[in-house]
Amino acid sequence: SLEGTEKASWLGEQPQFWSKTQVLDWISYQVEKNKYDASAIDFSRCDMDGATLCNCALEELRLVFGPLGDQLHAQLRDLTSS
């Protein structure tokens, strides 16, 4: 749920159509929501749009996002199937 936050830029759009900015917004949101240590994320490797993100295998997401990769992968699957 997104109570208390302004409507996120990526909400209501299919992930494969996200811009690079929307991807970063979504990642930041997941980091906050999961109380994850953002210093463990290599943000220089997050410079990708939604289509690229959706094409990432779980292993790739783990490389870039560490333990949060599993969470991101699961969330993406939910978003693309809805």
Rank of each mutant, 00 (worst) to 15 (best):
V64Q: 10
L24M: 07
L11T: 08
L53Y: 01
F17G: 13
A8Y: 05
C54H: 03
Q22H: 03
P67Y: 11
S9C: 12
K35H: 11
K20Q: 07
A51W: 06
R62A: 06
N55K: 14
L68C: 15
A74L: 14
P15T: 02
D49T: 15
C56I: 12
G4F: 15
S9E: 09
E32T: 08
K20N: 14
D42G: 03
T80C: 14
M48T: 02
D47F: 09
A8K: 09
G69N: 01
V64E: 12
G66I: 00
K33I: 12
Y36I: 05
Q30H: 15
I27G: 00
G69I: 02
E60R: 07
P67N: 02
C54P: 01
C46Q: 05
R77E: 06
V31H: 02
S28V: 12
D42I: 04
Q14T: 05
A51Q: 15
K33S: 09
D42P: 03
A38T: 10
L58R: 11
Y29P: 00
V23Y: 03
F65W: 03
D78E: 07
L11W: 09
Q16C: 09
Q71C: 15
L58D: 05
G4L: 08
A57C: 08
L79Q: 11
I41R: 04
Q16W: 15
F43Y: 14
A8G: 12
N55R: 10
W10M: 05
W26C: 00
Q75P: 02
G50R: 00
K35S: 15
T21N: 14
Y36H: 08
L2A: 11
E3M: 14
A51S: 09
L11A: 10
C54G: 04
Q22L: 03
C46G: 10
P67S: 11
D42S: 06
L79G: 11
D47R: 13
A51M: 14
K7C: 10
A51D: 10
T5P: 13
G4S: 08
L53K: 01
Q30P: 01
G69P: 00
S9H: 05
C54W: 10
P67C: 08
R77K: 03
A38K: 12
R62S: 10
L68M: 08
S9F: 06
E6L: 11
A40Y: 15
W10S: 05
A51N: 10
F17H: 05
Q71Y: 12
L79Y: 13
K35M: 04
W26H: 00
F43P: 03
R62G: 04
Q71R: 13
S39M: 05
Q30R: 03
E59G: 10
L61V: 03
K35F: 13
L61H: 02
G12Q: 04
D47G: 08
K33H: 10
L76A: 01
A38S: 11
E59V: 04
L61R: 01
A38E: 12
R45H: 15
T80H: 15
E13S: 13
S81W: 10
A74W: 12
A8Q: 08
A57W: 02
E3Y: 04
F65D: 01
Y29K: 11
A40M: 12
L2G: 09
A74V: 08
D49I: 03
R62W: 03
T5Q: 06
A38P: 07
E3L: 04
G4D: 15
L2C: 07
Y29I: 05
D37F: 04
L2K: 01
E60A: 02
G4V: 06
L79M: 12
Q30T: 14
T5H: 04
L68G: 03
P67M: 09
L53G: 01
E60L: 02
W10T: 02
D37I: 03
N55G: 10
Y29C: 04
F65Q: 00
E60F: 07
L79V: 09
W18S: 00
T80S: 11
A74Y: 08
C56Q: 08
S1W: 04
A51V: 11
E60K: 07
D25T: 03
L61C: 03
Q30A: 15
Q14Y: 10
K20P: 12
D70M: 10
K20M: 05
Q14R: 14
F17L: 09
A8D: 06
S44G: 11
D47A: 08
N55I: 03
D78Y: 09
W10I: 14
H73S: 10
Q14E: 10
K7V: 09
S9G: 07
G50H: 00
L76W: 02
D47C: 10
Q14P: 08
I27F: 04
A74N: 02
L72S: 00
E6F: 09
D47E: 05
L58S: 11
E6Y: 11
N34L: 07
T52L: 06
T52N: 12
Q14N: 11
K33M: 04
P15F: 02
L68F: 13
D47V: 11
L76I: 15
M48K: 02
G66E: 01
Y29W: 12
C54V: 12
Y29R: 06
E32R: 09
E13V: 12
N55W: 03
G4M: 07
M48Y: 10
H73Q: 08
R45T: 09
F65V: 09
S82T: 11
A38L: 05
T52F: 03
R62C: 07
A57I: 01
S19V: 04
D25C: 07
E59N: 03
V64R: 12
L24C: 11
L61W: 06
A74D: 09
C46L: 12
L72Y: 02
T5L: 14
D47L: 10
K7F: 05
